[in-house]
């Protein structure tokens, strides 16, 4: 059922290539497709940065400027003057700081229960949990909104982060459960014979081995929270509480009547908002790819 465990190195192999390549012609074609495709995929990112460093007059002229005449680094400062973008970014970081530990802790606990204990009703709970992935969020949205409204939790971060502290979502639990199942039980049993409690087994034996999967979960949760638009949009209605994703829409939506065009500033804001995710990915990418590959997302 789950990924079977051979040796760690055999499972790490996915990231490296093992197959003999195609013919010469095929290889050249592959390079051409990948290079052209790669340039097309990268272009919008290049264009964000380039546009963010131009003046609006340059952007709104009918001759194309691929690069700014003089890089306008001041555009980045102007974003922070135009809207409370620093505050919005800080709010996003705060939400991440609340949610990521919650997901890591509670999804690990749940995954541990499903992977290692044989309790009454386990399979039923497990299937129900997977079933939650199928049900659209809109089904629970309205009663949840009313619940948080009645509890006077509108304009707090509770509705946005409580899920992370209550299991962190079926996908994360499933990912960690698959990973735990690929760790041989002998390791747990050896620890139990040495007198370890189930908590100690999780803490001392499993969690250290789960580092790639936990990093994956942390990155995915970071990205979920950073990306999340809908929940903060409906649960928050004070501008200074907004995370960057919602703030960005406000910035985009300010009517142009009394201000000069601000495409350059919007591009700068988009770049600012994307930077933390890219930095995180660069730092953690080795673990991230291993985690996805190892966590039985291997199908």
């Amino acid at each position: 059922m789950a990924a079977t465990y051979d040796t760690p190195s055999a499972q790490l192999a996915p990231v490296t290539v093992k197959r003999p390549g195609p013919s010469h012609l095929g290889k050249i074609l592959t390079y051409i497709v990948l290079t052209v495709g790669g340039l097309i995929f990268a272009f919008p990112l290049f264009w964000t940065v380039s546009s963010s460093l131009q003046t609006w007059q340059e952007l709104r002229s009918f001759t194309l400027h691929f690069l700014p005449e003089v890089p306008q680094w001041a555009n980045y400062a102007k974003v922070f003057d135009a809207v409370p973008f620093a505050r919005w970014m800080a709010n996003s970081f705060l939400l991440v700081a609340i949610a990521v530990p919650g997901t890591i802790i509670t999804a690990s606990l749940t995954a541990y229960a499903f992977a290692r204990f044989d309790f009454f009703g386990k399979n039923v709970w497990f299937i129900l949990m997977l079933g939650t992935m199928m049900i659209p969020t809109q089904v629970t949205l309205i009663p949840q909104y009313i619940l948080f409204f009645k509890l006077k939790l509108i304009n707090t971060y509770v509705p946005l982060t409580i899920g992370a502290w209550l299991g962190g979502g079926a996908f994360m639990i499933f990912l960690l459960r698959q990973f735990i199942m690929s760790i041989p039980r002998d390791l747990d049993e050896a620890a139990v014979i040495d007198g370890a409690s189930p908590f100690t087994v999780l803490w001392k034996v499993l969690l250290p081995l789960m580092k790639p999967a936990l990093t994956t979960v942390a990155i995915l949760e970071f990205m979920n929270i950073w990306n999340e638009f809908f929940a903060p949009f409906i649960y928050l209605n004070r501008i200074l509480l907004y995370p960057a994703a919602v703030g960005m829409r406000i910035f985009q939506g300010i009517p142009l009547e009394n201000t000069e065009p601000r495409d350059h500033l919007l591009m700068a804001a988009a770049a600012i908002m994307t930077l933390p995710v890219i930095l995180l990915f660069i730092v953690a990418q080795r673990y991230f790819i291993q985690g996805v590959v190892l966590s039985g997302l291997k199908i």
Binding site: T106, L109, T110, Y112, A113, F114, F117, D118, F119, F120, K122, W125, L128, M129, T132, I135, V139, T140, L141, I142, P143, Q144, I146, L147, I162, G163, W165, L166, G167, I173, P198, L202
Partner: peptide
Amino acid sequence: WQNIYGYLFLTPWLIGFLGLFIGPGVTS
């Protein structure tokens, strides 16, 4: 003990499942 520990570790998710999923789902 399989039952005890199983449910102990399952508790956070179970609270969320019942409180944020089943409850609101039935209400809706």
